[in-house]
Design a protein around this nucleic acid. Sequence first.
DNA 1: AATTAGAATGAGAATAGTTCGCATTTGGAG
DNA 2: CTCCAAATGCGAACTATTCTCATTCTAATT
Lengths: 139, 139
Amino acid sequence: MKETNETNDLQKAGLKATLPRLKILKFLESTAVRHLSAEDVYKAMLDGGDEVGLATIYRVLTQFESAGLVTRHHFEGGHSVFELNEGKHHDHIVCVKCGKVEEFYDETIEERQHLIADKNGFSMTDHALTIYGICSGCQ
Amino acid sequence: MKETNETNDLQKAGLKATLPRLKILKFLESTAVRHLSAEDVYKAMLDGGDEVGLATIYRVLTQFESAGLVTRHHFEGGHSVFELNEGKHHDHIVCVKCGKVEEFYDETIEERQHLIADKNGFSMTDHALTIYGICSGCQ
DNA sequence: AATTAGAATGAGAATAGTTCGCATTTGGAG
DNA sequence: CTCCAAATGCGAACTATTCTCATTCTAATT
Ligand SMILES: [Mn+2]
Ligand SMILES: [Mn+2]
Ligand SMILES: [Zn+2]
Ligand SMILES: [Zn+2]
């Protein structure tokens, strides 16, 4: 009967509570760095003594994305960056020097996006807004 | 003394007016499809009887980008999309069904982005905003 | 607790998009 | 017209990601 939070989260998402999935989910919940590439996750888990194949990392992150447990972003360069989904939508501001990522939410921008979609006859399904700049520490 | 517009544009950009660069620039100026991948450009030029090596397409598009002649985007999927730079900044709304791309410019969003960058101590250098949705023709 | 069928994993091959290395060609300054 | 640095074409190399498939694991059922 004793079930961990993570086991429950996975089952609620319709995913078997396998060891790799549990390890990845726990890692995402515990890491201080919120925005990570698949390779980042792979290496961090290696360092933590939890070896999971890279292909599995990719598969699981994609499954987590479909299940709404994580979000995927494409910051410049094109490759995927993942973060644990904490439920609150936000966009990003990225330092082009050091890679630092800050999060923000702006109601006005969100509203305008819907207006623009409507004006163009689109029913909006999603959006991606990333501001690039140089952070205070880098200038 | 007789110089084509394109030859001048290239020279102003500090680029030698080579045949491949002239062909690519003329193609970008004449095509009805504004947003193209390197492969798209490659194939379109083949069809037009102007064969240019794919590596050259990539090199030239990147040089054009540095020179400000074209802009590069990363719509979802990760691979690069290029468009001729007509001088007026804009963002994009992309149909996730058919790939149709519309352009828009919203002063309020532009202003807010600067505010947000400032508030976070960033000096903004760039931004990428793409709205995804389903176009009128696809719903 | 043992069985078991189907789902998940790991390892490496395969793929897509892009860049690189280098021998050959070309543009344009002199 | 000459000549060299710059540009091109080709295939090899690379990077991020997905696929294949033999092996292992999960969890439902005896
Ligand atoms: Mn985030
Ligand atoms: Mn555009
Ligand atoms: Zn920085
Ligand atoms: Zn459409």
